[in-house]
């Protein structure tokens, strides 16, 4: 992990005019000049690649003290549409993968994240203004959440599906299937644990996702793209956009090739507006849900898995084995 920082904060970055000094900025003293660190250009994650916004726009992201952290891409409608195309393209392969395989891939995400733990602790602490310990708890819980959902991939069908004892000579089986492309408005406050808590259940069952990162705290989400890219998650399965939530969400809610939308990151007015737009092609809508007292720390139920599942029921004719032979 070459980008692992020495201490909190990227050292050596010069504060922008008008802003206070960054935490961790080395004091300029006599002697050897301090080494200038290398900044990261935060980019979107779409179709397994890391593009800038096609609009060329960025917006300033600051820490809780108002200190500049980075310029994040300010995604456009076109970025949203490109992400939907990528997510649709990935859907066949990902939904067709075995549940066991998807479980292994999700577990791999946890492994990769564990290795980058300190980076995410720093990013979450800076973004949300948490102490190191608080941020570490968030990141640890996020890693564990990937593990939790990794285990669900090959169990949810047994919990919510099954054979139906119909009154006739039929083998009747109901199985859950992924809905398709899901637009996800990540929670605004919980930049990483909340984010992981909404992405993992969507993709665990074979959906693909277009995720809008927390508007104020987008950096942990954009860094998650780097983790996903190195975790055997096929390109396009998760696409991450940063920018103004309302601006990006509107075209996604109205998009005819999006099958569902998770409104976790929408306020009441935006949620209603998006739900109305989503009715145009009858997207599955998960309205904003109450968050547990611990801010996403409670073990989830299965609701976020089942919200984006369809039930397919197949009637197979069994006929009867008798003197009459095959009978349909």
């Amino acid at each position: 992990m070459s980008d692992k920082p020495e201490k909190t904060g990227k050292t050596g970055k010069t504060a922008k005019a008008g802003k206070g000094e960054r935490p961790g900025e080395p004091e300029g003293t006599a002697g050897a000049a301090p080494r200038l660190s290398v900044f990261k250009t935060y980019k979107l994650y779409v179709g397994g690649k890391f593009p800038r916004s096609e609009s060329g726009r960025v917006y300033e992201v600051t820490d809780s003290q108002g200190t500049w952290l980075a310029n994040a891409p300010l995604s456009s409608r076109k970025d949203a549409r490109d992400a939907v195309v990528a997510a649709r393209k990935a859907f066949g392969g990902w939904s067709g993968a075995t549940a066991y395989n998807r479980g292994q891939v999700l577990y791999r995400v946890a492994e990769m994240l564990e290795g980058r733990r300190e980076q995410f602790v720093r990013e979450v602490a800076e973004a949300e203004g948490l102490s190191q310990a608080e941020a570490a708890a968030q990141v640890d819980a996020a890693v564990d959440r990937w593990v939790w959902y990794a285990g669900w991939t090959d169990k949810i069908a047994q919990v919510v599906g099954g054979a139906n004892p119909v009154a006739g000579p039929y083998f009747n089986l109901s199985t859950p299937e992924p809905t398709g492309v899901v637009a996800v408005l990540a929670p605004q406050e919980s930049s990483f644990l909340g984010l992981v808590s909404v992405i993992a259940p969507v993709i665990a069952t074979g959906n693909t996702a277009v995720v809008i990162a927390s508007e104020r705290f987008p950096l942990p989400a954009l860094s998650l793209g780097e983790v996903l890219a190195t975790s055997d998650v096929p390109g396009g399965v998760v696409n991450i956009l940063s920018g103004r939530t309302a601006e990006i969400a509107a075209p996604l809610a109205a998009h005819q090739d999006v099958n569902a939308i998770d409104l976790a990151g929408a306020d009441e007015a935006l949620a209603k507006e998006l739900e109305i737009a989503a009715a145009d092609n009858l997207k599955r809508v998960l309205r904003p849900q109450p968050v547990d007292d611990g801010g996403w720390s409670a073990t989830p139920g299965t609701e976020r898995l089942t919200a984006f599942l369809e039930t397919k029921t197949v009637w197979h004719t069994t006929g009867a084995l008798g003197a009459s032979g095959s009978s349909y």
């Binding site: 119909v166 039930t311 029921t313 197949v314 009637w315 349909y328």
Partner: peptide, 20 residues
């Protein structure tokens, strides 16, 4: 949401019905 193989329009209260 409902697929019938070698039959059609079969319904039963135990069998979930609904669309994609």
């Amino acid at each position: 949401g409902v697929v019938w193989s070698n039959t059609f329009n079969k319904f039963d209260p135990t069998s979930p019905f609904g669309g994609y």
